[in-house]
Design a protein around this nucleic acid. Structure first.
Lengths: 345, 345
DNA sequence: TTGAAAGCGCTACCAG
DNA sequence: CTGGTAGCGCTTTCAA
């Protein structure tokens, strides 16, 4: 490989254009005033040299990194089964951030408690100007941490208690769950179980509460409510235990779609048919739910929309003037064929 | 909110410790020599001030951003059905990069051709020190681009033609497909179709070739081979067309697991049973395949492993001395219940 | 309208 | 073993 020439700097451009670096800077930040002729010369020189301002120099000079951090907790080694690497969220977030010149820096942590350290490191080293918080937990200390670090932050989810942090809830608390409950009740279900996500997750808690409240209006209580990781295998285990203890359950809700699929697998393996013997409802509205047999009734929520909206909130916290607003629809029940009338008799 | 004090700088630490900035720098980069006493004083001062070296200053000074870029093409708005946001890959990549202090910067592009521009921008602005390339295409120009930009790069996949770029192939060309072919042939299948990924993808091409070659050894030719996007809906459409034209097909392979699920859905909706009437094989080994009914026979490959290995390759290109090697297993056929003997008669 | 100079926070090179 | 100095590439007063 031949020695590659040093990247051109603003000084080179200035020299070529026969002006000062100041002039170049002004042109590229449309600050101050520059005569049209000079500007043309400068732009021409920059083009010739293929010069682009150095992001690192700008970062140092302006004390902003133009980067937003997203820190994710990866519980296990296998991520396929982990709904917590929020692909759709990123798909919504990133383009909006990029439209304002912000990059998205992804970090994963093995342990929950590493997170605080990671935020601190990123913030203190000035690697990021702000962060997107996901997976809101009960007792979450990240909001205070962000404030202490002076780090603009937006939470995608609902804070566990009143908090001044900017957040973007998943719709009103537990949205979609009342509809799911009504749906099951209308089909005649009375013995309903809920295979839930982790106990300490705010989102899971809100949904569980909304579900319980909706059922209570019909004087129904969940026959069982288990909490645990958002993993299909955990859902499978818990479904099996559920069926052992309450074989007469007629409907099961799951905290996540892939959990519901795993649950259905257990049902089939016990000779129970869905929905003839047991109805099943998932949560999230992943596309696969449409293709499986029976098609999965679920509560769909749109993380892409939520990601976009969160990006806007954060950009504003970062001092950007953003006009655009993005719609975020409420989570909604999608009735497909994994739910049906309770069996007569 | 009260006015937050300016972040401490190395000068503050030096002042507090009563030494020069040089001394502080030396301690934190264990360069040069510093007496134990001085070092202790310096560390103490840094601790008191909660000082962390500024990443941006280091970036400017060292002309490295300590960041690696990952640019992804997002074809549609809905990412759920898009296997191209390679979650598992990221899960493998990021921790290894982070272990050496490298961050992972994620960018998405709407159009394929925007990619070149994005690489150029990142490289010229020195936002990234290197890139991970995914989704190897036939006619791919990114390798030359990376060289032109002097940007260390590693391709996860196989280059479309001989190229000096560092890459991490998905095992030997088309690995797993011969096994899949043998499996079907052994079950008595002769009328086999392949609902493939995009025509211009190297990985898809290699797999198709490997499949065709393996079948040819048994004097079998695919009754149909369609190419198209890696999307379930496309797979559904193509499956329907396939069944219209070749109703006598007894086995269908798919370029991706979620495509296979969509295909099975179409089969069921036509009253065909899997595997009694038609056998189905997917590709990738996503976890959901285990939970659906019937469980999906597939070729599993481990993107997490591949991500780790790719990170090591890139780190070395970036001049890091990495001892650790990560195992990358060959893709392997996982026989489950979506394949069965061809129906007698 | 233009540019000289100072300096963002850090590290490398030398001289002491 | 220690520290002064120069400078990474850029922007921003402020003076001409």
């Amino acid at each position: 490989m031949t020695e590659r020439p040093r990247r051109p700097t603003i000084t080179d451009v200035a020299a070529l254009a026969g002006v000062s670096r100041t002039a170049v800077s002004k042109v590229f930040n449309d600050h101050g005033s520059i005569s049209l002729a000079t500007e043309a010369r400068i732009r021409e020189a920059a083009r010739k040299l293929q010069w682009t301002p150095s992001a690192t120099a700008i970062a140092l000079r302006s004390a902003r990194s133009w980067t937003v951090g997203l820190i994710l907790h990866r519980p296990g080694l296998e991520p396929d089964d982990d709904p917590r690497l929020p692909v759709s969220l990123i798909a919504g977030l990133e383009p909006v951030l990029a439209s304002r010149g912000y990059g998205l820096l992804l970090q994963t942590t093995a342990e929950e408690r590493e997170q605080a350290q990671t935020y601190r490191r990123l913030a203190e080293a000035k690697r990021v100007d702000g962060v997107v918080l996901v997976d809101s937990m009960i007792g979450d200390t990240r909001f205070e941490l962000a404030r202490e670090l002076g780090l603009p932050a937006v939470l995608v989810g609902t804070p566990w208690r009143e908090d001044p942090i900017a957040y973007l809830g998943h719709g009103t608390h537990g949205a979609g769950m009342p509809e799911a409950a009504e749906h099951l009740v209308a089909l005649g279900h009375r013995r309903i179980a809920y295979i839930d996500g982790p106990e300490h997750q705010v989102d899971a808690r809100d949904r569980a509460q909304a579900l319980a409240a909706a059922l209570a209006r019909h004087a129904i209580r969940l026959v069982a409510h288990t909490t645990g990781p958002y993993s299909p295998s955990s859902a499978a285990v818990r479904t099996a235990e559920l069926l052992d203890r309450w074989p007469d359950v007629t409907a099961i809700l799951y905290g996540e779609d892939t959990m519901a699929l795993a649950g259905m697998h257990v049902l089939w393996s016990r000779g129970l048919r869905v929905p003839e013997d047991v109805s099943v409802i998932g949560y999230n509205g992943i596309e696969v739910g449409e293709w499986v047999q029976p098609q999965l009734t679920t509560v769909r929520r749109d993380s892409v929309q939520r990601g976009r909206a969160a990006a806007v909130v954060l950009l504003r916290l970062l001092g950007q003037h953003v006009e655009q607003e993005y719609l975020v629809e409420e989570p909604a029940l999608v009735v497909r064929s994994s739910t049906g009338p309770v069996r007569a008799g």
